[in-house]
Amino acid sequence: MAELFAQYNYVIVIILMMTGLYTIFASRNLIKKLAGLSVFQTSVFLLYITISKIKGGQPPILLEDKKYGYDEDGYALLDGPISVAAGDASYILPGPGSDVIYSNPLPHVLILTAIVVGVATLAIGLALVVRIREVYHTIEEDEIEAADFIYNLEGTAD
């Protein structure tokens, strides 16, 4: 039990994930399903953010601070740097051995992308619901299926 409290962030992720999935499958209302989908996706954002957090970690931004020092070309001088080659130039990132601990920026960036994807999905989903309501005059799945029952049976277009 204590373990669960110590890792409460993962517990929250799981609760959100299951809430979202349950809402998607249990509700027959199109908007509620989309809400469930959003909650489900949000749990993933939390999962990614939670793995990138490092206790005492700084935002991963290189400040022009005297502490690091720069060489004549403007490269930051650090202890134990990782150098990353890009084209002809190389860039130095803080790495093991440097005295500053940074939070991992990568999952944040990934999740920024995933949030945008989530917004796009939600927007398209809501737009579809608006169109469905205009055509069927309902957003309840059962009523939509009932309205299409005869078409599905005959396999015709209306």
Binding site: D73, G74, A86, G87, D88, A89, Y91
Partner: peptide, 18 residues
């Protein structure tokens, strides 16, 4: 002459290119 989105080639100095 660089790869797609390789900012380093945008200027003579790679850093200002970035």
């Amino acid at each position: 002459g660089g790869e797609f989105l390789n900012y380093s080639v945008l200027n003579e100095n790679a850093i200002s290119g970035q």
